[in-house]
Write a protein that binds this DNA or RNA. Structure first.
Ligand SMILES: [Mn+2]
Ligand SMILES: [Mn+2]
Ligand SMILES: [Mn+2]
Ligand SMILES: [Mn+2]
Lengths: 234, 234
DNA sequence: ACCCGGTTTTAGGTATGCCTAAACTATTAG
DNA sequence: CTAATAGTTTAGGCATACCTAAAACCGGGT
């Protein structure tokens, strides 16, 4: 009983495009389609590791399917329908990451690659069962919010980039917002995972000196943009 | 660390062809490449729900990859390399079925469709973790043997088709060897699942009268070919 | 020996999703 | 206000995996 899904059957590539358009067009904290910005061909090409010409082709196809609004030279935005699909894929992704971590003992930094593929291939029954097993979690192991079954994206606690903390300030890692495997490996290695405490010791030209898991490190600025921290007692 | 796998990266379609060549070419009990028979274009076309012309095309490609031996008009057999791939896919499939059943509470008859897709998309890490979680099971929920991590197919206990039992004989369902969803639903509904007791009451022209789960049914002959039974006390 | 009918292959075509190279557009720096 | 350049699109290709229609094959029966 396939419930003849209300959404068309999309390819893996199409689903990934929609998901990335959502991710790239959203403010780091933000949710809701209205607060979304247009995404350029170039950004998508970089993120999808594909040539810009390929992106143009795909965007035309998605526009025909009424999943995006696309005007040449002006970037794309999701339509209401496209937004739904993107959230659905994102839900699969983040539930899978959580399940791999909690049920199968995957490392925090290992889950992304596996989820990136599986998100396109699990059924709604599978989604439902792992969500139940997990007790309907609100956040994945990276601290990212998981869209609900009704496709609402929960608001998070207010956070600031690690880069924005003053010297001497401390906080709790709330989110490590990276898709890059090497960066994740590094963070995992340093103990900079969601829930951990961090303190900014000093801002330097080459990066930010921090203390995490009892050790001191110099983090390149780019990496301190990726880590979001919440109030210590929050 | 992808360990740069010894086998080439194959498409989902290629993997499914190899698996079906293995399944169609093996005796119902049999294992080992030697005891395998050639498989015809037609059989594959039926099984894969594809036209014979498509099969011919695929077989040529697989032959180029040295995964099958293919001679026009004479059917295919797997090469040693193709046999390995087929067993690998089969291991994924049957481990997944077992996991979906035991860990996620899928019904015995629901697992096939989900496994059919996922088998191509899980990593070796995933395979390993579910195998460990399950305690390295030897058989899947349908009673089919699961290839080991070293890709050996365990021998089963000797079984006979339900159709082969004499009137009055009883046995334990050892295996329900169907890929057909509707047949599986029916068997599940009747309580004819691996481990259940069955008794053949009478052979009729229209089918076989059996008792299972306390009830009496008339099973079409075709369906009694699919069910394998072992000695009651075996 | 030959014919027939089922099986299999060939030939030619579709759609997807990617590529490169070349042409074009929009924006920004002078 | 133009001209360079970064960003984008078009045009033309390739590979995969299917399809249909037509031709070729093969084995059994006469
Ligand atoms: Mn993906
Ligand atoms: Mn879903
Ligand atoms: Mn499959
Ligand atoms: Mn494997």
């Amino acid at each position: 009983m396939n419930t003849s899904l209300s959404r068309p059957v999309l390819s893996e590539a199409q689903e990934d495009y929609l998901k990335q358009i959502l991710l790239l067009g959203s403010a780091p904290e933000g949710s809701s389609l209205e607060h979304t910005t247009a995404v350029s061909t170039q950004e998508l090409a970089d993120r999808m590791e594909v040539k810009p010409a390929s992106v143009t082709g795909m965007l035309k196809k998605l526009a025909e399917l009424a999943l995006v609004e696309y005007e040449a030279y002006k970037g794309v935005r999701l339509t209401e329908a496209g937004y739904k699909v993107a959230l659905e894929v994102l839900r699969h992704h983040r539930l899978l990451e959580t399940y791999l971590h909690q049920a199968l003992g995957y490392g925090w930094e290992e889950v992304h690659a596996e989820a990136e593929r599986l998100e396109h291939h699990i059924s709604e029954a599978f989604e439902k069962r792992i969500a139940e097993w997990l007790g309907h979690p609100s956040h994945d192991p990276h601290g990212d919010p998981i869209p609900t079954a009704e496709l609402h994206l929960p608001e998070g606690v207010p956070t600031r980039r690690l880069a924005a903390l003053e010297a001497g300030e401390r906080g709790l890692v709330a989110r490590v917002g990276s898709q890059d495997q090497d960066a994740l490996n590094l963070f995992a290695h340093l103990g900079l995972r969601p829930g951990a405490q961090v303190e900014v010791l000093e801002h330097m030209p080459e990066g930010v000196r921090v203390r995490a898991a009892g050790e001191r490190y110099l983090l390149p600025v780019a990496l301190t943009q990726i880590v979001w921290v919440a109030e210590v007692g929050g």
